[in-house]
Design a protein around this nucleic acid. Structure first.
Lengths: 237, 237
DNA sequence: CCATATTTCGTACAGTGTACGAATGCGTAC
DNA sequence: GTACGCATTCGTACACTGTACGAAATATGG
């Protein structure tokens, strides 16, 4: 028996909007994985019907573009005036943290070629920090490609790990190593027994080492020649 | 009118096998993209019917695992006896080249948590080269995480670029920059006009810079302390 | 020949994105 | 009021996905 008054037929759910669709899509992806984010599941989460979403979004691809941009908007921007090194350090750590929270975003990056405003803003601010610090345009391009490659690649590896926290390493690693036949993969075995399976191991700790090494290298590159183009070292021989 | 003799009813197509299924899947993904790789399209390419594939493969996920492992098998292994630096350099360049050929593989890595034999072999050989060069276990872990993060991240960025070759940069970049409203993204504009749109620009060239910087840093790290654990630099202040 | 195992594949089902067009509600002008 | 026009909601339908189930065809061994 449907109520007839117009007042009650629009139930008191908050009205739909593009914003709300995207935020809810992000929440669903976080909660149940990107594979569980379907038009129908999203509509259910919003208490609507599937086809209603298409008034705010052209297609599913636009939703994916949108939530990737939302993820980017969570990353700390380097402050405009500060030194480049702590700025880049903070940004890198923040990006890694954000990408670990939304690990499905990494896999999406490969197929998304239309960056959103938050993504563009993020890139612009980062480039600006480097340029303001005296990096040449060339050197800025080098530094940016290097830093972002490292950040994304690290996040990708972290996402692909079969274990999530430091606690569950053994339960996952042990049975895999057991499967290796007698003499196979000796160095993987060593790495497992002498490093990964040691108490307190956490892959995430590796991030800092590489990040500092890269920032050191960049610092050296610009102090050498004021940010000019040549590669960081020409090895003799 | 079906032929009745058993001889002619089995047409002279080469017999199915797990190997053939995976190799064909790889070819389809390369030719038409990973999105076009479906059980039905794969069966068509193999001149069979969809359900026949399931005798050689448990499900589609196993196919994806399989072709990722095939991709890994294409990457040059560092030779066992050689110096670590040229070995790592060659491996990195080879990995990048392979991942550029099969750019869909990057996006797959995030969701694949069961590495195949070629993948394990690859990791083992790389670890072995570093250990043989005198890297400590800790330092090997650091170096490996760093190098692979850079390689995967670079490949991911390369895959996400809207343009493929050096030729098409302008056609893609120009209209995007045109869309920016008046004062927005000044540093992106600068990077576009003064670097990306310059003749001869190729993002792929950035790879070498970062790779050399990382290898320099690693070389310094092990010569400092014989591959001991501490980070590459402790900055004063 | 038959019996058994391996391999092929036809049919069916639940789930996907979304095109199309019909309903419904809402704001304004008469 | 009432009628129009627009924004919004959504029902139905279609082509396509992975794959469960079981039947058919073929190969193998006695």
């Amino acid at each position: 028996m449907p109520e007839k008054s117009s007042r009650s037929s629009r139930r008191e759910r908050t009205p739909l909007s593009r914003e709300r669709v995207l935020r809810c899509a992000l929440a669903v992806a976080d909660r149940e994985g990107i594979g569980a984010l379907t038009i129908r599941s999203l509509a259910r989460a919003l208490e609507t019907k599937p086809m209603s979403l298409y008034h705010y979004v052209a297609n599913k691809d636009e939703i994916l573009d949108g939530i990737v941009d939302l993820v980017f908007s969570e990353i700390d921007l380097p402050s405009a005036g500060g030194d480049w090194r702590p700025g880049m350090h903070r940004r890198a750590q923040s990006a890694r943290r954000v990408l670990r929270c939304h690990s499905w975003a990494i896999g999406l990056l490969e197929s998304r070629t239309t960056p959103g405003p938050a993504t563009l803003q993020h890139h612009d601010a980062t480039l600006g920090t480097l340029r303001a610090a005296g990096f040449s345009v060339q050197m800025t391009a080098h530094a940016y490609a290097l830093l972002d490659s490292y950040i994304y690649g690290f996040a990708l590896q972290e996402a692909a790990l079969p274990f999530k926290g430091p606690g569950t390493v053994a339960e996952v690693t042990e049975p895999i190593v057991q499967l290796f036949s007698a003499g196979d993969y000796p160095h993987l075995r060593e790495m497992a027994s002498e490093h990964v399976l040691q108490p307190g191991y956490d892959f995430g700790n590796e991030f800092e080492f590489g990040l500092d090494l890269i920032l050191d290298g960049l610092a050296a590159s610009i102090s050498d020649r004021g940010g000019a183009l040549p590669p960081p070292a020409s090895r003799p021989g």
